[in-house]
């Protein structure tokens, strides 16, 4: 029984962390069709922002929940204005440009911080469940993921800002004819996507640590989740993260971590073969 509760928490945590690392990418890819290969580095920069903020004395919470998204969001806007905006509709060129950006950011971070960066430990301490113990911070990550997903849903569904964003992505010319400034919407959307990546990087920093190449560990899973989820941003991310997170954790627990990773990748291949448009291409089609 204790074990079942611990396992349930871990499955929820896997889903939450997958959703967190994918959401920023889902917004940028799902709404703007930009394949951002520097997404992993945005997460990495979020982690560094949290660590630097904490070491500068801003406090863990402010650094993680405010500084990290603000800093990376700002970087996102700069990147959109200087690189991405010239490449809309040229998917291959964007991939090349963002891949270059990813290498540049890794190099720059190594140059500035070196490769021995003192991390931050997870707050809250441990949580005992019967004979088992797990980190209480796990529950915090689940809560943050839920709040962020809920927030994005509400903004997109119920605010004027969300309506304009969705309208511009669907038909930029029509939106422009109705008095919207599409380049501004693009810049803001890209910035929001980057800020959410920064938040995810900051929140996960105490769990996974921060070093210049950590993005590599995230990016493949983020892409698999976004592609598996399909066109709808929130529903797609949640459904794909739930599917892959559950499979990954249960397979890891039942067998070994190697098979856990294999099961996740295997599930992704089968899913894309059966549902080339992702989960929301077939189910929850009216989702968002």
């Amino acid at each position: 029984m204790d074990l079942a509760v611990v396992l349930a928490i871990q499955v929820l945590y896997a889903i939450a962390s997958l959703a967190l690392i994918s959401l920023g990418l889902a917004i940028v890819f799902g709404m703007m069709r930009v394949i951002n290969l520097a997404h992993g580095e945005f997460l990495m920069l979020g982690g560094y922002a949290a660590i630097v903020g904490t070491h500068l004395g801003f406090g863990l919470w402010v650094s993680m929940l405010v500084l990290a998204p603000a800093a990376v969001g700002l970087i996102g806007v700069v990147v959109e204005r200087t690189i991405i905006r010239f490449l809309y509709g040229r998917m291959i060129d964007t991939m090349l440009a963002t891949w270059g950006l990813s290498l540049f950011l890794i190099g720059l971070t190594t140059f500035v911080f070196g490769n021995t960066t003192v991390g931050i430990s997870a707050p809250f301490g441990a949580l005992a469940i019967g004979r088992y113990r797990t980190s209480a911070y796990t529950l915090f990550v689940i809560a943050v993921a839920t709040a962020v997903l809920g927030g994005v849903y509400v903004v997109l569904r119920h605010t004027r800002l969300g309506l304009i964003a969705r309208g511009t992505m669907q038909n930029a010319n029509m939106a422009a004819a109705l008095g919207v400034n599409p380049p501004r919407v693009y810049a803001v959307t890209f910035g929001v996507g980057a800020a959410l990546s920064g938040l995810a990087g900051g929140v996960l920093a105490p769990v996974s640590g921060v070093f210049p190449t950590i993005g590599v560990a995230y990016i493949a899973k983020a892409f698999i989740t976004v592609i598996g989820g399909g066109a709808a941003i929130v529903t797609g991310t949640v459904s794909a993260a739930s599917l892959f997170g559950t499979i990954n954790q249960l397979a890891t627990f039942a067998t070994t971590p190697v098979f856990g990773e294999v099961a996740l990748l295997g599930a992704a291949i089968v899913l894309i073969r059966l549902l080339p448009q992702g989960i929301t291409g077939r189910f929850f089609r009216r989702g968002l």
Binding site: Y13, S208, T252, F253, P257, V258, E261
Partner: peptide, 20 residues
């Protein structure tokens, strides 16, 4: 004996297994 690919960052299930 448990083996981990070099890019694994989530060790939750293994930590439960070790406790068990």
């Amino acid at each position: 004996i448990d083996f981990f690919p070099l890019d694994v960052t989530n060790f939750g299930p293994t930590i439960s297994k070790i406790q068990a």
